[in-house]
Design a protein around this nucleic acid. Sequence first.
DNA 1: AAAATAAAAGACAAAATAGTCCGATATTGT
DNA 2: ACAATATCGGACTATTTTGTCTTTTATTTT
Lengths: 153, 153
Amino acid sequence: MFSKACEYALRAVIFIYIKGVNGARLSIPEIAKEIDAPLAYTGKILQTLTREGVIASVKGPNGGFFVDPQAKAVTLADVVKAMYGNDDVLHTCVLGLKECSDKFPCPIHAQVKGYRDHVRKVMENTTIRSLVNDLSKGRTFLKNVRQRKSFRK
Amino acid sequence: MFSKACEYALRAVIFIYIKGVNGARLSIPEIAKEIDAPLAYTGKILQTLTREGVIASVKGPNGGFFVDPQAKAVTLADVVKAMYGNDDVLHTCVLGLKECSDKFPCPIHAQVKGYRDHVRKVMENTTIRSLVNDLSKGRTFLKNVRQRKSFRK
DNA sequence: AAAATAAAAGACAAAATAGTCCGATATTGT
DNA sequence: ACAATATCGGACTATTTTGTCTTTTATTTT
């Protein structure tokens, strides 16, 4: 659905909101490790997110990435837009038709339209902040837990 | 959502089912033009679809691509599988987690799960044949109609 | 002020995807 | 049998995406 870069971006921003809400600053290595993404590539992505105002950063010792306390609420769609430059990906037709719409539907428009609209609304209406609670309580997860072969008791 | 190759493939197969149901054979140029895709690339894709048994073909004069009358019903998911070699794309997590599931959900799993499953079911349960009627009656479309500037009356 | 630290910036490199081209092969009509 | 036609198969090119590396710049600590 989304590019790797966008997936990493979403995971990174969510992570920063968990650990960085109190103003704490997160380094590239910390973030890359937590979201299970390549280190240098994660740096590139964080750079883009900062430039686009999704997160904030400071250089130097004790620097890193954090949540700008006076920025307005960031949604999942905001992250997507920051990474692609637009939110076309939330609107595109499954068959790739540029003009697919209710009035000019592709053969499976009726069947999937509801889904696409729903996902778009979820992305537009879900703030990153709203995801933090479940995550920090361990009800949702940001990366795959390695399955252990067995436990010694 | 899908690769360009997969989009072309879906459009191509649907078209072949419209024009080729009575055993008529469609050439690469005819198909490429109708689905608005690059000629040679369309050839490549049709080759794959034929190899995978989604459609049939004969070489030589009056040859081309057609619907094998004794093949079992082809679904949208069959086309997707033919192009990717699997149907992973119908199962993947929005955030790119390999193990995302009800028991081990990503932060937005709950919000999008129902609809992802819906799309998968649509793809698996919708046969190409079932799309033909609306299409040939002009209720759905396979390519963008160029908008004319004006009509002379 | 100097040293240390961490992100920013930009040039590269690798891999995947998209797309082209051409010779070989199969089929049909004459 | 021969010529014409259309897909098949594979090599090749182009573009985009993914990822790395090195230098510069900003900030903080000593």
